[in-house]
Structure formats: C-alpha cells, structure tokens
Design a protein around this nucleic acid. Structure first.
Length: 939
RNA sequence: GCCGAAGUGGCGGAAUGGCAGACGCGACGGUCUCAAAAACCGUUGGGCCGCAAGGCUCAUGUGGGUUCGACUCCCACCUUCGGCACCA
C-alpha cells in the first residue's frame, strides 16, 4: 500500500472528510445508475435549464466552472423542487483556432478538435454536474452540421438568405481573407503586411426583417441591461428618406437618397456626404478631384469601423467635384466623401446640416462649408458682441435702461439678450452703430446690423452677401470662409451657435414657423406631397453576414452551375461533408478552394459539371439552434421532432456570459422566429429567462486566454481541494453577475467550512427530548430561517450569500454542539437532515455521502427540497436602532411589530438618547417598525 | 468614440432608502504540541478621549443635489471591465 493510500485509509477510518475518496466513488455510482438521464416521458413538469456550450479551445479554464457550477446548482435545486430537469452539455466545435492549430501542428482540425473534446469532457465530468451525457451535441459532427445545412436551405427557401457583395479584410501578400482578430494594428497578424479590404459575394441572413419583433421582450424575463443593449444594437430610428437630384454627366443615377431622423432641418442642408465605399463616389468624381478621392477612399478602407465612428477624431473628407440639388429649396450643394459616414447604415449618405448635427457642424467648420441655422433654439439663448470702437458712447446706458444685461471688458460689451427684447436690442444697436461698422445678433435669431440697414442671415444668398460685406469692412475676417467660421472665432458666441434640439422651423420656405412638436411630421407630409421623399424607419441592425472563407465550418450547401446559377444542394444529399484530407497552407488560405474533390461536383439540376460553394458558415449559425437539438439529439430524419419540441421547448432558464449580449443572444432569437415561420415551432422566443454571469478574469485582471498566458486550469484546484470545495469557492467568491479577477487564496476557508459541515453531520451529539425548551425554538428558527435564505438565494442566483448562509448555520450548529446547551433530539435531527439537503445542489458529493451516513436512502439528489415554515423562521424579538438626527445613540430590543407609541416612549426614555435631546426642541419622531426610531431635534 | 456594467476595510465581498463592513481570506494573540503543521478559540476600518466599561468622530471612486435618514435615488466627473457585427 502506498504511503498516500495509507493516509487515505486512516482518514477514512477516523471518519475524516476526504473528497478524493468520496467524489470518484459517487460519480461512478451516479453514472452507473443513470441518475442524471432525463427521460422524455417523465410526468413531472419539465424544466429546461441550459448553460452556454463551451468552445473546444483545448482546456477548460476556471471560467467554465465559474459558469457551470452555479447553473448546475440551480438545475439540481429545480429537480429537487419536483421538475423533470433537462440540463444538457455539448461542444461548439467549429472555428478559427482549430485551423490555426492545423497550420501550426499539421493535424487536421477534426483531430485537434476531438482530442480537445475528449479532454474537456473528462474535465467537465470531474465537476460532478448533472449533465445528461446521452444528449451531448458536437456542432462539428456531420450528424449535427447536416441540420445546420438543412436550416440554411430552409432559410433560403423562405427568402431569408441572399447573396450580396460585402468587404472582408484582405492580406495582399498571403492572398487570404483575415478575421478582425487577425488584423493587428492594421497589419496581417501572420506576415505584418498592411491589410486592406476587398469585396466578395457573400451570404446573408435577413435578420433585419425581424427587427421590430426583436425589439419586443414582453414574452421573456431577460435582464434589463441586455434588453437595453439589444435595443440599442437594433437602433430603430424613425425619420425620412429624402431624394436629392443628381445631374452628373458620367453617372447613371439621376438621384441619390439619404436617410435622416431630422427631415425638419432639410432647408439647412449645405453639403452632402457619401460613404467612401458608396458606388456613386467613383461615378461622380470629377477629373480634377479623382486622385485625391481615390487616395482618400483607399485610406478609409484600411480603417476599422470603431476608428471611423469615434466622435473625437478629426472629421476628414474630400470634395468629389460634384453637386446635388436639395429639392426642398432648389439649392445646389457640394458632394463630399468622408469616413464618418458608413456605407452600412441608412443609405450610406447623409445630408450635411451643420447647424443642427454635431458631426456635420465639426465637418463643415473644418472644411469651410457654409452652415445655416433653420431650427429656432428652444432655450432662447441670444447673444451679441459690441466690439470696442464700433459703437457710439452711451450704448451701455441704453442697454441698462432697456434692462438688457451685458459685461464690459476692455471697452467691448458682451451682451446676453433676453428673448423678448431682441427687437429692442436691434433698435438700440442700429442707433449706436458707427459708420463703416457692423454688429450682429446670434443664437435664437440671426441678424446682421450694418450702418445702412439690417440683414437677416436666413438663406444661402444672405450667407454670401453678409460674408462679402463683412470682408469688405474688416480685413481681419478676410481669411474666414463662412459666416459661421467668422462667428465661431469669438469664444463668447460658441455655446449659442449650435444646437440639436427640436424647435420651431425658421428660414424654411413654406414650412417656416412650423412648431417643433410637429416639424418632422409636417416636413414628411410636405415632402411626400411634392415627391421629395417619404417617411420611413431605419435600423442600425444589419443583415447577418454568415459566409466565412474558412475550412473548419459547416459548408454552405449550394452549387454554382453555368446554366442554372445558384442551385441548393438537395436535402437528401446532405450533409455536404468536409474533406478529411484537406491541406493547410501557412498563409491561412481556406483549403476548400483548392481541394479538387470537394470543389468539383455536378449540378443537381442539370447534371453538368459545377462548382461547390467553398465558404463555410459562421459558427454563430451552429450555436443559434443547438438548444433545439438537445431535445432530440439522435434524430436522423429531422433536426428535432415536433412532439419533443412541444414537450421541451423553449428553454426555461438560460445562463451564459454577458459578452454574448448582442450577437449570439440576438442571433438565436432571430433563428427561433425564422424556424417558427417555417412552421416548425409554436413559440416566439428561444429562452424564457436569462441570467448573464460576469466574467472571471486572470490574476492580471484580464480575460483569461491562452495568448495572454493567464489561464488558471481547474484540474489542479480540484486535485488539491476536491470538486465540491472548488465549486463552493467559486460560488462564494462574489456576485455571479459581476465576475472579476480570480484569487485562489481564499479557498482554504471553504475547505474548512466543508470539514466543519462534515463534522457536524457525522458527530455524536448528546441530545435530549426537550421540545419546549427555548433553545429548541431558537434552533428550529435557525434551521428554517437558513432554509428560507438558501431557497431565495438559489432562486435569485445569489450563490455567494447562499454559501454565507450555510456557513453561518454551520457555525451556529458547531456552537450548540460544543456549548453543552440543551439540544432537542428531534430538532437536531431536523437541522442536520435539512442541512444535508441544502448541501445537495451546491456540493453534491459530500451531500450524498452524508445523506448515506445519517441513514437515509440513496440518493439525496432524488429527494424533495424541504419547505420552510415561515412562522418558525420568524424572530419574535428585534433589535432596533434609536437615532437622534440620523445618528445611532441607542439600541433597543423590542417584540416584533412593536406598536409605535411603545417604541417611541422607550426610545425617548433612554438616558443616552436624553443626553442628546436635552435642551433641544423635538421636531419629529420617525418610527420604522422593526428597524429604527429617528428623533429629529432642532437647536 | 459609442452601447452596457462596476467602483465599500490589507483582500473577495454583505447591506437596494433605515444600525456600513454579514460571511470568508489575510494578519495579530492564544489553546494543543518537544516543535511545526493542522484543528480550535479570541481580536482585527481610520482617528480622538478614557485605567476600563465605554464614548465621540471620520469613512462606501470624486464633486454637488434630494431626504428626518443615502453604499442605495438624481446630476456632473474620474477609473476599471464587457461588447462594437470575421475570436467564440
């Protein structure tokens, strides 16, 4: 016998807690008995608990346990609560890392992946979770991806899949497509070559068709923050699509459309911007501007969207040389191209309204484009600057007499004009203006006062006239390209020059004076009447691009034929199998494109030679429907049977990382709705309840990943402490929805706790029959109160306080056992029994062992969750605080729900309270039953 | 940058409008031991007053506000984390 085995043996004889002995024993027993099989024909109410399936990266890290141990705890709890619980597990097995490994080690991705699955499955089993392994799903296995392909065909059939050009990152040296992750600092991760983008014909799913339905969360209980993120991601915006006339010799189009949420500002449009990718850019650019535009478009294609959307960046752009006509006022405005406009949003074009859009304002100022205010400021802010030497003596007195406030600095007046005295101000200004000078009013009104009359800044011609006049009068403004630029040079004016609030329309032709609350609707009606555009809704959400130029994914099941075009692979020919002899090149180029056996096929329609689609599907496609496959994982006629779908779906409780808030969790909702519309499902949402746990991070506070080298493997921890201790420690660490860096140093406290728990349940305790003793009542209160806390904590995913409550209970039982106090036999037995039952969900192995030890029949996991007696759990006395002006001065013990009068009387009688109240006037006394009395005094 | 979160002792955290620091780690002191480990018991936010019992006071990222009362609600700011459509 080895030394270690002897130690273990002695421990067992002495009755010490030895997880290494009991955990494998019970895992083997549970597996042999099929304790966690989930029958389809169980009459109990079903509960489908699902936790996100892991990606087969190779090793489980503690993040997987962090995600799964609490899910398992709740699933076990629901089972004890009388449900037939389905809690399956599987592997998300397609993806880029498998190909990277193939390039590096030469192993086929399938080999690498199945090796990883072997290892991960073993690690998962060591957790002692109640996964039903009979239902395991692997997304990369042909009997799974066959159905992913089948769903693709169904989506195609229902017009939810289509092909369109879209850009991908491209490494010109490797001649290969790159993922975002493979582009580091604008360069190819592999070879360091600067990357660019290239347009490819790719497959999309029409998720946008469901945009409005995806905004409806009323059928589910999902966290508010996730709903909010999805709503913002979908980004529904009401507005208008407006036509602009295009008369450029080279261009096929005669018009170009913009989407705007502010059609009411259209009279203020003074320029027009196309996204650099917009196909019109090339058509309309004039010969003089061509070189500059091409260079700009090239540079834009090298940037990420995140860079482009930053509102802090300089607003770059170039003029195309072309003009479009604003149909509302007939003005010709210049067309620019700028990278702050995205081709993927709206129509890929914006009308530039500098006065009322922050980005347009910055762009127009920088590039010297005119700005014309057309919406009145609702805040009424109006300013004027009377420069030293431009006004006659007595201006200050006149303003004071008119009650118009101003500040004087170095002989100049800085005037803020009350809204109702603007006209009066203009009169005063005119009467004090020196010849050859001017003065202006900005903000709510825009007026230039010259010595021979007043000029309103109300139109593009007025802009030109005012600018010319000012330049003639003042050499210092000759460099200014626009009126706004001139005004902006004065810091005093800046807060009055721009606003994006809704307000009355001004300088807007027929619609001038339309009030702000009707402005958008009236403009749309007017525009629709004239044929200038129409009201519409736009979304930030884009259709889902599912094509990947990769080998390790589910092949997209279509064939390209010279005669028949795009031909779907017939259902009976599925799956389109991945070749097992693919050859990986160090460049990362997909082997499918040059694998002749895969590439060459015959057209299913005409039988002539044809080529297969070599792109594979986004792995999010595979994980969009896996919850449907778990319910019927071995069905080889359908993805799942209708009958089982009716029984099991939708998922009752989904748990997973918050990092999936907008992509996976939106895709699977879309998928469910699409499958519903194919007639295969009878509900609208895939997961009724969702809980997002936070992320457990490495000791450096960063996300755990192999590349960062901060991965902590669970195996070592399990080996040292046992699975139960490790599970409980992860749950004890902190709130599940928050996450944070993992620190292993506190685990000994949890190990000590389980040791104490073991000792309590296995100890001989001197008991007597004392059902009426006060100690008996208080012991039962502890038992039922703990049960109440634990029950609520599991229901609400508060696993850290669940463990705390169990620890407190353990401490209390230890004290009673050692203190030599009266211990009633029945109450002690109740306490221990319920304690072991409460241990069953979080720490299943030790609970099973102790259950056996106290003489109960196998298995603790098939027992009912005990119900607490609220009247036993309730205290009969409470300590309340007595405050004077919010500071605690005394504590009183009162019966529960003591009447207000009695509580106040006792509070005021206390000497320490009197000392703080003496000589002062009692203004108020607040009584919060069972909490506190607060005496408010004055003086 | 945009969207969503989070900031409380030396550390993880508890308290969701009512006694800030439950539970645990660590640290310090003790019991047991030849000794150490383990186990068990006790103390443990800062400052001030007091021999002591105890009392006073400051303190929940920063600054303001609402309230009898704010970790909790509101406004502004700072820092950190997650996501931003080809990592999954």
């Amino acid at each position: 016998m080895s030394e270690q085995a002897q130690t273990k043996d002695r421990a067992a004889q002495a009755g010490r807690y030895d997880p290494r002995a009991i955990e494998p024993k019970w895992q083997a027993r549970w597996a042999a008995d099929g304790l966690y099989r989930t029958p389809d024909d169980d009459p109990r109410p079903k509960w489908y608990a699902l936790t996100m399936l892991p990606y087969t990266s190779g090793d489980l890290h503690i993040g997987h346990w962090w995600a799964m141990a609490p899910s398992d705890t709740q699933a076990r709890f629901m089972r004890m609560r009388g449900h037939n619980v389905l809690f399956p597990m599987g592997f998300d097995a397609f993806g880029l890392p498998a190909e990277n490994a193939a390039i590096k080690d030469g192993a086929h991705p399938a080999e690498w992946t199945s090796r990883n699955i072997e290892r991960m499955r073993g690690q998962l089993k060591s957790m002692g979770a109640m996964f039903d392994w009979e239902r395991e799903v692997i997304t990369a296995s042909p009997d799974y991806y066959r159905w992913s392909q089948w769903f693709f065909l169904k989506l195609l059939e229902h017009d939810l899949a289509y092909r369109q050009m879209a850009p991908v990152w491209w490494c010109p040296k490797d001649q290969t497509v790159l993922a975002n992750e493979q582009v580091v600092g604008g360069e190819c991760e592999r070879c360091g070559t600067p990357v660019t983008k290239r347009d490819l014909e790719q497959w999309f799913f029409r998720i946008t068709r469901y945009a409005d339905e995806l905004l409806d969360f009323s059928k589910m209980q999902w966290p508010e923050q996730i709903q909010l993120m999805q709503r913002n991601w979908i980004g529904r915006r009401e507005g208008a699509e407006l036509r602009f006339g295009l008369d450029v010799p080279g261009a096929k189009e005669k018009e170009v459309r913009v989407f705007t949420t502010r059609p009411d500002t259209v009279w203020g449009c003074s320029f027009f911007v196309l996204a650099p990718e917009h196909p019109l850019v090339d058509q309309i650019t004039t010969a003089e501007e061509r070189d500059a535009v091409r260079a700009y478009v090239d540079a834009a294609r090298r940037q990420t969207e995140i860079e482009r959307l930053s509102t802090e960046r300089e607003k770059t752009g170039v003029f195309t040389g072309a003009y479009v006509t604003n149909l509302f006022n007939g003005e010709k405005v210049p067309v620019w191209t700028a990278d702050y406009v995205l081709y993927s949003y709206g129509t890929g074009a914006v009308m530039g309204v500098g006065a009322h859009d922050e980005r347009d304002f910055a762009f127009a100022l920088k590039h010297g484009l005119p700005i014309l205010p057309v919406i009145e400021r609702p805040d009424g802010l109006t300013k004027s600057f009377a420069m030293h030497g431009t006004m006659q003596e007595g201006l200050g007195d006149a303003l004071a007499a008119a009650r118009i406030p101003f500040e004087e600095r170095s002989g100049s007046l800085f005037i803020t004009i009350p809204f109702d005295r603007i006209d009066r101000y203009v009169e005063i200004s005119r009467s004090h203006l020196k010849p050859g000078c001017w003065n202006e009013v900005v903000g709510t009104r825009w007026i230039f006062i010259f010595d021979d009359g007043v000029q309103a800044w109300d139109s593009p011609e007025a802009e030109r006239r005012i600018l010319a006049r000012c330049k003639a009068l003042e050499p210092a403004v000759r460099e200014r390209r626009t009126v706004m630029e001139m005004l902006y040079s004065l810091a005093f004016y800046r807060d009055a020059l721009f606003h994006d609030a809704y307000g009355m329309m001004v300088h807007s032709g027929d619609l001038t004076d339309t009030p702000g609350d009707r402005a958008i609707a009236e403009t749309i009606r007017y525009g629709e009447g004239k044929g200038y555009g129409k009201g519409t809704v736009n979304y930030r959400l884009r259709d889902w691009l599912i094509s990947r130029q990769r080998m390790w994914g589910a092949p997209i099941p279509v064939v390209y034929c010279k005669t028949d075009g795009i031909v779907p692979v017939p259902e009976q020919d599925l799956p389109v199998l991945l070749p097992d002899d693919a050859e990986f090149r160090p460049t990362g180029e997909s082997p499918l494109t040059y694998h002749q056996g895969f590439l060459n096929t015959t057209c299913p329609a005409c039988g002539e030679p044809a080529r297969r689609e070599t792109d594979t599907m986004d792995t999010f496609m595979c994980s969009s429907w896996y919850q449907m496959r778990y319910i019927d994982p071995h069905n080889d006629e359908r993805p799942f049977s209708r009958e089982l779908a009716r029984k099991w779906l939708p998922v009752d409780q989904y748990t997973g990382g918050a990092e999936h808030a907008v992509m996976h969790l939106l895709y699977t909702r879309f998928f469910t709705k699409a499958v519903r519309d194919m007639g295969l499902l009878e509900f609208d949402e895939p997961m009724m309840r969702l809980f997002n746990q936070g992320q457990i991070l490495g000791t450096d506070g960063q996300r755990m990943s192999k590349s960062r080298g901060n991965v902590i493997a669970p195996d070592e921890q399990v080996e040292k402490w046992g699975a139960d201790t490790f599970r409980a420690y992860l749950m004890f660490l902190g709130p599940w929805d928050e996450g944070g860096p993992y620190d292993p140093s506190g685990i000994s406290g949890v190990a000590r706790w389980l040791n104490r728990a073991w000792n309590i349940a296995t100890a001989d305790v001197a008991t007597t029959d004392a059902p009426d003793a006060p100690e008996t009542r208080s012991l039962r209160r502890w038992t039922h109160h703990t049960l109440q806390r634990v029950t609520h904590d599991i229901e609400r995913f508060h696993f850290n306080t669940m463990v705390s409550a169990l620890m407190e209970f353990t401490n209390e039982l230890s004290r009673r056992r050692e203190a030599g106090a009266t211990v009633d036999r029945a109450a002690w037995r109740e306490a221990v029994e319920m304690f072991v039952l409460m241990l069953a969900p979080p720490v299943p192995h030790i609970a099973e062992e102790l259950w056996e030890h106290i003489g109960k029949p196998y298995s603790v996991h098939t027992q009912s969750w005990p119900s607490y007696d609220a009247s036993l759990a309730a205290a009969d006395e409470v300590e309340i605080a007595v405050q004077v002006n919010g500071r605690v001065r005394e504590r009183l013990t009162l019966p529960v729900d003591a009447p207000e009068d009695a509580a106040k009387e006792q509070a005021l009688a206390s000497p320490s309270v009197r000392a703080h109240v003496e000589g002062k006037e009692i203004v108020r006394v607040i009584y919060v039953p069972n909490r506190l009395v607060n005496i408010v005094v004055k003086g």
